[in-house]
């Protein structure tokens, strides 16, 4: 079984500083991390390898610094790491990103072996869309399952897989033919810590890095900024609200005031003890 995990290096948006005028991320002050959600995808893939055998590859699109993210996947037990890195990929929205990754996935199939499965995280913390995974699946013409919370079983002989996914109101157990793409929810597992041998291997690991020219048959008009139908017209601070009432006075006054406000509609209070 050959599983590919898609991973991304992202700015740690939680601690990111924004330029006060342009509202763009100040990259110099921002630390890069592996997208937290993607570590769950890596963990899921490595566990599948441990249960069913086979190999795991990882793929990232990004600047040269993304080597660190690939190394993190190697630390966790991934066998082969791949990157696509080129200015031609820069400025890609979700459509162009999914296209580039799908072309690279096909090259990985030619380079290593055909894929049975692709696993992605739920969403990235910088883009926050969750659209790339399903996009890659559609480009490849594969089945897609998002919000996967459990991989129940893989029937390799029948080329079938059963997963549990969250839907709008609960969950469903779905059986899908392979190859398929799963976008996993972070609740699916707890990513492991690296083992010592994998840490040693990762420290020296050099992923295979492809430029746009290395991707045979790629349509360059579908890459990067050029291949992205969406553009950011403007960024702006969130609308300023007018502001409400200041509750002032001593702590006792504040408590008294809040008690009154909260008890204005006692029917909203669902007391649990019996009356």
């Amino acid at each position: 079984m050959h599983t590919l995990v898609l991973v991304k290096q992202v700015p740690d948006t939680k601690n990111a500083k924004l330029h006060p005028v342009t509202y763009t991320i100040d990259r110099s002050s921002t630390v890069n991390i592996t997208n937290p959600s993607d570590l769950h995808a890596v963990e899921a893939a490595v566990r599948l390898k441990e249960t069913y055998g086979g190999i795991v590859s990882s793929l990232s699109m990004g600047p040269p610094s993304a080597v660190e993210t690939i190394r993190e996947t190697i630390q966790m037990g991934v066998d082969h790491g791949f990157m696509i890195s080129d200015r031609a990929f820069a400025g890609a929205d979700t459509l162009a990103t999914a296209y580039a990754l799908s072309i690279a996935a096909q090259k990985i199939e030619r380079t290593v072996s055909p894929l049975d499965l692709i696993i992605t995280g739920k969403m990235t913390i910088d883009g926050d869309t969750g659209q790339v995974g399903p996009g890659v699946a559609r480009r490849l013409g594969w089945y897609v399952l998002t919000n996967v919370v459990d991989i129940v079983e893989v029937q390799l002989k029948d080329r079938l897989m059963t997963v549990r996914r969250q839907n709008n109101s609960g969950y469903e157990v779905v059986r899908t033919p392979l190859p398929a793409l799963l976008a996993v929810d972070p609740s699916i597992n707890k990513p492991r810590r690296a083992s010592m041998p994998n840490m040693v291997r990762a420290a020296r690991y050099q992923p295979t890095i492809w430029s746009a020219n290395d991707l045979e048959g790629v349509d360059r008009s579908k890459l990067g900024l050029k291949g992205s139908p969406t553009i950011v017209r403007k960024v702006f601070p969130p609308p300023k609200p007018e502001g409400g009432e200041r509750v002032e006075g001593s702590l006792e006054d504040q408590v008294k005031f809040l008690t009154k406000i909260l008890l204005e509609r006692p029917e909203w209070i669902k007391t649990r003890e019996k009356v």
Binding site: T13, L18, Y23, T230, V232, P237
Partner: peptide, 10 residues
Amino acid sequence: FGGNIMATIL
């Protein structure tokens, strides 16, 4: 950007 700012997309 992690909810620090609003962006209008076209």
